[in-house]
């Protein structure tokens, strides 16, 4: 995992496979950065994530709910096609902006 904070924007880039095991750890770490920086804008870059199951949906949704309380926008960046398919099965694709750049 890599993170970068600048001018109110927190960007986190994940590299690990997102399943129940990795998500347990990741959510604590990510929330740590969110609470520390209290960003206005949050980017979650999934470019290097090669696998994700429904635990990843839970991870994304959990962060979204936390950020919403802080009036922070969240965007998912660069999901691979297969991860996009998993995301699109859930209703988070209606709530959370997703784009590739």
């Amino acid at each position: 995992m890599k993170y970068n904070y600048q001018d109110g924007i927190l960007s986190i880039s994940l590299e690990e496979e997102l399943d129940v095991n990795s998500c347990k750890t990741l959510r604590t770490v990510i929330d740590g950065y969110i609470m520390k920086y209290q960003p206005d804008e949050f980017f979650l870059n999934l470019e290097h994530v090669k696998f994700m199951d429904s635990s990843g949906i839970g991870l994304i949704l959990g962060r979204y709910n936390l950020l919403k309380l802080m009036n922070c926008n969240m965007t998912i960046l660069n999901p691979t096609n297969s991860i996009k398919r998993v995301i699109e099965l859930s209703n988070i694709s209606n709530k959370i902006a997703m784009r590739s750049e």
């Binding site: 429904s54 635990s55 839970g58 859930s90």
Partner: peptide, 21 residues
């Protein structure tokens, strides 16, 4: 879909939906 017995653990309740799809 979206039902989970353990919402506090941030399970999305999408497991069976994914298996079915």
């Amino acid at each position: 879909p979206a039902y989970t017995s353990k919402p506090e653990l941030e399970h999305a309740g999408m497991g069976f939906t994914i298996m079915e799809s």
